[in-house]
Design a protein around this nucleic acid. Sequence first.
DNA 1: TGAATGACTCGAT
DNA 2: GATCGAGCCATTC
Length: 109
Amino acid sequence: MNKFYSDVFEVVRLIPQGRATSYGAIAKYLGAARSSRLVGYAMNTSHAVIPSVPAHRVVNRNGLLTGKAHFNPPERMQNRLEEEGVRVIEDQIQNWDEVFWDPSIHLIL
DNA sequence: TGAATGACTCGAT
DNA sequence: GATCGAGCCATTC
């Protein structure tokens, strides 16, 4: 497993409950600001990782659940978020400004 | 080995 | 502002 992947997973696990962050924010925190797509790619393989990665807390920079289709079932992503107190309407996280959690701000490397 | 792909992002129109 | 197009880079075929 690449360090990049493990780092991504580690950061995602640190996201507080009821919060969410973006692929770009994670990439930036890891020093790979232009590799946001790779973060999503890493998430694609995250379902096989132990302990499981809360990938539902990672969305694109608009708070849109672009990756929900990769969950099984897809509704699981939204359900998990709502269980944690995050309102989601039409795949869009409500109050995104307050829900957004930036690792480069809340985390010290 | 070379080319295509993607759970994204940013800058230009 | 909203929309469109190009850039990015590890992984896969």
